[in-house]
Simulated assay, not measured.
Amino acid sequence: MTKPSLRAALNSGKFVAAPGLHDMITAVIANKVGFDFAYASGYWTTASAHGIPDAGIASYTQMLDRVATLCRTSNASIIADADTGYGGLLNVHHTVRGYEEAGVVAVQIEDQEFPKKCGHTPFKRVVPTIDMVEKIKVACEARRSTETLIIARTDARQVEGYEGALKRAEAFAAAGADVVFVEALESEDEMRDACRRIKAPMMANMADGGKTPIRSAKELEDMGYAMAIYPAMTGLAAAQAAFKALSAFKELGTSVTPAQELYSFADFNELIGFPEVWEFERRWARQSNEG
């Protein structure tokens, strides 16, 4: 199966809106709905796989396994959060190669110190700009395919202020980043100004509950963004649904209540591929009987 090219989409001027897929149930549901692109968030894949915070605790190996599984499961092309590149320049090189082999179409790296923090939580620290510039250059050199994009993120807005973050973003664009991502901007004015000043395709992070105002894909395109991720949407929706279901069960002692709607078990079996398994069983059971 040939998946959509992110580079081609951006070159054509098509705005890319990518929902976050935090687990494989969400991935197969997204296959049914239909998306060209989706996002593998470090925060949400870590939370769903391990139940721990996005604070540099999950290892490169754990994240690579999760990303590779998502790439195999999803029909969409996956844009993947690779945190800081999991270390120094050699680690960045190894990370880009690993993520590319896993099947992602874009690798996102950021300028935080290791261990990193979620971009919308406190106590972030950033590395010197030159260190991140070198990571971007190594990342660009490490990729084997021109279809693999490098997304450079700065978390300096809350550390060095808005102008400090923009100065870094300009340096990242000059270093060769295919897409620039200024994390946790705090107003629509900042978002518009950043798109106007940065001479590279810009990505917006629509993190529900975070510091940046949530805007629609059309509004972001009008501001000047080339693409946007919505990393928290499915994770928060799933958490709310699970909380509601469990609360009703604790109170009423049954899964069948007017307070919640359950996805069809028959439809879910189809989503995850049981019909193919049953057809296999029928075929080989028949051949065994004939033998």
Results as ranks from 00 to 15, higher is better:
138 V>D: 11
43 Y>L: 02
290 E>I: 09
41 S>F: 05
47 A>Q: 10
251 E>W: 09
267 D>R: 11
188 E>F: 03
34 G>D: 04
166 L>D: 00
212 T>D: 04
186 E>V: 00
67 V>I: 15
203 M>Q: 09
256 V>W: 11
154 T>S: 03
54 D>Y: 05
72 R>T: 12
288 S>M: 13
115 P>S: 02
19 P>D: 14
88 G>D: 13
140 C>F: 07
140 C>N: 12
92 V>K: 05
128 P>G: 05
121 T>L: 00
38 A>Q: 01
73 T>Y: 03
141 E>R: 15
217 A>P: 11
145 S>L: 04
229 I>C: 08
36 D>N: 03
263 Y>R: 12
40 A>H: 08
131 D>C: 06
50 H>I: 12
82 A>N: 07
242 A>V: 15
170 E>K: 13
273 G>A: 08
286 R>P: 01
173 A>P: 08
168 R>F: 01
278 W>G: 01
191 M>P: 11
21 L>D: 04
247 S>L: 13
166 L>F: 04
250 K>G: 05
28 V>A: 06
175 A>M: 08
208 D>W: 12
29 I>H: 12
54 D>I: 04
284 W>I: 07
242 A>P: 11
80 A>E: 02
277 V>S: 09
26 T>I: 12
254 T>N: 07
208 D>T: 15
156 A>F: 02
103 G>N: 05
249 F>Y: 14
291 G>I: 14
182 V>F: 04
186 E>R: 00
23 D>N: 13
106 A>Y: 06
159 V>G: 00
199 K>P: 10
21 L>Y: 02
115 P>T: 03
97 R>S: 07
156 A>R: 01
257 T>K: 04
123 F>H: 13
251 E>L: 14
15 F>Y: 06
133 V>P: 03
2 T>A: 13
13 G>Q: 06
